[in-house]
């Protein structure tokens, strides 16, 4: 049987990769991908705890809600990105700092 630890380690690796992606990419869409990686690894964590503990279904329920939220977040984020692109003809996050002052 596959151990719970295995899943947790996979999840941890992907989570860290997601953090790395967010920090590394300058492209806003790249950052969005990093966020998706993080959300997925969190989902994996919830579901594996759901499987390996007594409260079987609750973890899955939360994962469902996370998925829905991720979809909503992606839709809004891309709408914002397209707006930025339309105004500025670029998607570089380091150049977007109008709200600083």
């Amino acid at each position: 049987m596959i151990q719970l630890n295995t899943f947790l380690i996979i999840s941890a690796i992907v989570f860290s990769t997601g953090i790395f992606t967010i920090l590394y990419k300058k492209n806003v869409i790249g950052i969005l991908m990093g966020v998706e990686l993080i959300l997925n690894s969190v989902n994996l964590n919830f579901i594996s705890f759901a499987k390996y503990s007594d409260a079987q279904i609750n973890g899955q329920m939360i994962a469902i809600f996370i998925m829905i939220l991720a979809a909503a977040e992606a839709a809004i984020a891309l709408a914002i990105i397209l707006n930025i692109y339309r105004d500025r003809a670029m998607v570089d996050v380091t150049l977007i700092d109008e709200m600083k002052n």
Binding site: I19, I22, L23, V93, T94, I96, D97, K100
Partner: peptide, 14 residues
Amino acid sequence: IQTGQVQNYILGAL
């Protein structure tokens, strides 16, 4: 500190 760079904030949070 307020650079306006999102990624700096993430780094700070981390």
